[in-house]
Write a protein that binds this DNA or RNA. Structure first.
Length: 499
RNA sequence: GGCGGCAUGGCCAAGCGGUAAGGCAGAGGAUUGCAAAUCCUUUAUCCCCAGUUCGAAUCUGGGUGCCGCCUCCA
């Protein structure tokens, strides 16, 4: 079995075959950098990060290109509102983008071109389109002539004539437009007074939105690429237009597989800047929601389906991740106690009569994982495998953490080590890595000294021995409020952790 | 109006013709002065109707209800 992906172009789940053996070229539509990214962006880039990781893990050499749209009306508006420049706004938001994506453990793209740095390529692509009769210029604007593209609408399943008639009935025609046809779109926009601009043969202006992607794909990856990525909201018109431009220019297919991720919804409605129902990644991170919780939340659903974001869902994800995290932390935190560093390499096969069975069992997990991922990146299914794998490891981790660990037999330890190794590897394909509890050491409002805690515990112990449980419980509550949790153990031992 | 998608337990979510993964919540048990935490166990016949089939959550037809796109958008 090998990887199958749902191709928007055919609406079918197809076997993935790369253009060149063992190499994959991917272009992912990036963000317009006028503001911070929200959970919708996070979902998109987490999901594509997993695609990339899975391809790499499967043995492909992946070239991943993702753009920044750093020239656009929204950026211009933001700049004028702030009294700064387009460049300042976009530069700042690019840095913020990196911060958020790095925090979420999203691998940086191999190349991240910016529209403003590709003006030469953009201009020459427009010129080419003009020369081929696919574009026309009017008063410093250049438009793409949609009606000349025979297969326009093939990605979004639109019939242009029908759409046109229907749209006319429902929408205002763009007043005062110089376009020949309302579906034509701008390749080059003449600059308004005071706006940033680039010179061109059509006059001072700037590129339209769609053309930058066509130009960048061509420049960075060539005429035809393996996979083109984006959100479903980009299918029309953005990706449709990209195809029209690129194919009008090169005469070749732009991308062989078009993959689109579903939207993040809030109360059943799409999260978006314009609706104002968004939560930024930064908000969540600042609130103490861990990066891996966000990743786990996203990967619980299939990438194509809508995913509802709510506090409840996030809470549930946080608890779910906590359990998985325990299992993943086992080796890194307690490898020494288990003697794992020593047991590696000392694996005498004949020592372990169950070895074959156990190997077989682990193999099953491995296979189930691959089957799930091969099936159009069924991360939800893959997570189920990971959880099954994690169960005994989590139990062991928590036992050790609670000092309830009793020494295990050596073959048992070796088996668990293998299990943990597999778990770590598979989780890593999903980008899930062990995380230290967020606020273990440095929480601002948690500045109570260890000695004070010990004293409080001693007082509580005394109260308990006097059966003054009200007082004992008060002490516990007081500590709780200060972020200290008490754990009573057998034998009258009380331990505490900062939460 | 056109195009596309989705409907599975209290919530989220897999399943792709062979008798319902996983997470969260809930319940029971172990532990505890009580808690918390932890560990173990446990909870569904798949929106409705009609068909195809030995057999359907899974295929076909017809309903119903949601959502996305058609304007910037991941």
């Amino acid at each position: 079995m090998s990887l199958r992906l749902t191709n928007t172009l055919t609406r079918q789940t197809e076997l993935f075959r790369s253009l060149l053996p063992n190499q994959v070229s991917i272009y992912c539509c990036g963000v317009t950098v006028y503001d911070l990214c929200h959970i919708g962006h996070a979902r998109s880039y987490i999901v594509w990060d997993v695609l990339r990781r899975y391809l790499i893990w499967s043995g492909y050499k992946v070239t991943f290109v993702q753009n920044f749209t750093d020239i656009d009306d929204k950026i211009l508006n933001r700049a004028s509102k702030e009294g700064s420049t387009m460049h300042e706004v976009s530069e700042r938001n690019i840095q913020e983008f990196y911060k958020d994506m790095d925090a979420l453990g999203i691998m940086r793209a191999d190349r991240m071109p910016r529209a403003t740095k590709c003006i030469v390529e953009i201009r020459s692509l427009i010129e080419e389109l003009e020369a081929k009769g696919s574009a026309y210029s009017i008063d410093g604007d250049v438009y793409f002539s949609v009606m000349k593209q025979a297969d326009y609408g093939k990605l979004s399943g639109r019939n242009l004539e029908e759409q046109y008639i229907n749209a006319d009935k429902r929408m205002h025609k763009s007043e005062g437009s110089k376009k020949n046809h309302s579906y034509d779109f701008a390749l080059w926009k003449s600059a308004k007074k005071g706006e940033a601009y680039f010179p061109s043969k059509w006059g001072n202006g700037r590129p339209g939105w769609h053309i930058e992607c066509s130009a960048m794909v061509k420049k960075e990856l060539g005429d035809t690429i393996d996979i083109h990525l984006g959100g479903t909201d980009l299918i029309f018109p953005h990706h449709e237009n990209e195809i029209a431009q690129s194919q009008a220019a090169t005469g070749k297919e732009l991308a062989r597989y078009w993959l689109h991720n579903g939207m993040v919804n809030v109360g059943g409605e799409k999260m978006s800047k314009s609706l104002g129902n968004f939560t930024t990644i930064r908000d969540l991170l600042d609130k103490g929601v861990s990066a891996m919780t966000i990743r786990f939340f996203v990967l619980q659903a299939h990438y194509k389906k809508p995913l509802d974001f709510s506090d409840e869902a996030l809470k549930s994800a946080s608890k779910g991740w906590k359990g998985l995290n325990s299992a993943l932390s086992l080796g890194t935190n307690h490898g020494e106690i288990l003697g794992w560093s020593k047991s590696i390499g000392r694996d005498k096969e004949h020592d372990n009569p169950c070895k074959e069975i156990l190997e077989e069992e682990l193999n099953q997990f491995h296979l189930r994982f691959i089957n799930a991922m091969d099936d159009d990146l069924n991360t939800s299914g893959a997570l189920a495998v990971v959880f099954d794998l994690a169960r005994p490891l989590r139990a062991l981790n928590n036992q050790i953490e609670r000092r309830e660990f009793s020494q295990k037999k050596s073959d048992e330890i070796r088996t668990l080590y293998k299990r943990w190794t597999l778990l770590t590897k598979l989780s890593n394909v999903l980008g899930l890595k062990p995380e230290k509890p967020m606020n273990l050491s440095s929480k601002k409002d948690n500045n109570i000294e260890d000695q004070d805690i010990e004293n409080a515990i001693a007082q509580r112990k005394k109260a308990k021995s006097e059966k003054d449980y009200i007082k004992a419980d008060n002490i516990r509550e007081l500590l709780q409020k200060q972020g200290i949790e008490l754990i009573d153990k057998q034998g009258g031992i009380t331990e505490w952790i900062r939460i």
